Simulated scan of single mutants.
Amino acid sequence: MYSGNGTVAAGWPAQNQWIDFDTMFTANIPIMKQSCGNNGWGANDSDDEIAAIKAAIKKVSASSGVDARFILAIVMQESNGCVRVVTTSWSVQNPGLMQDHAGTGTCNSGGVIQDPCPSSEIEQMIVDGTTGTTSGDGLVQCLSQAAASDVSQYYRAARIYNGGYSGFKADDLGTGCCTLCYASDVANRLTGWSSGVSGCHLGTA
Rank of each mutant, 00 (worst) to 15 (best):
M1W: 08
Y2K: 03
G4Q: 11
N5G: 11
N5A: 09
V8I: 15
A9S: 12
P13I: 14
P13S: 06
P13N: 09
Q15S: 13
N16G: 00
W18K: 05
F21V: 02
T23W: 01
T23Q: 14
T26C: 05
T26S: 15
A27L: 15
I29N: 03
P30E: 04
M32V: 02
Q34G: 14
N38H: 05
G40L: 15
W41M: 12
W41F: 08
A43Q: 14
S46A: 08
S46F: 07
D47T: 15
D48K: 10
I53A: 03
I53G: 01
I53C: 10
A55K: 14
I57E: 07
I57G: 02
K59P: 00
V60G: 01
V60Q: 11
A62Y: 11
A68S: 14
R69Q: 13
I71M: 00
A73L: 05
V75C: 11
S79V: 10
S79N: 10
N80S: 13
G81E: 09
V86Q: 01
V86S: 03
T88D: 04
S89E: 12
W90K: 03
W90N: 11
S91M: 12
V92C: 11
P95H: 05
L97F: 11
Q99G: 01
D100K: 07
G103N: 06
G103E: 07
G103C: 06
G103K: 07
T104H: 11
T106N: 12
N108F: 06
S109M: 12
G110A: 11
G110N: 08
P116I: 04
C117V: 06
P118C: 05
S119N: 12
S119K: 15
M125D: 08
V127F: 05
G129N: 09
T130K: 14
T131R: 11
G136Q: 04
D137A: 15
D137H: 14
Q141C: 04
C142N: 14
Q145E: 06
A148C: 08
D150P: 04
D150E: 06
V151W: 00
V151T: 11
Q153N: 00
Y154W: 15
Y154I: 03
R159I: 09
R159L: 04
Y161N: 03
N162E: 07
G164C: 00
S166C: 05
K169F: 03
D171Y: 14
L173K: 02
G174Y: 13
T175M: 05
G176F: 02
C178T: 03
C178H: 09
C178E: 09
C178R: 05
C181Q: 06
A183N: 02
A183H: 02
A187F: 08
A187L: 07
A187P: 06
R189I: 05
L190S: 01
G192S: 02
W193Q: 09
G196R: 09
G196E: 10
C200D: 13
C200I: 03
T204D: 08
A205T: 11
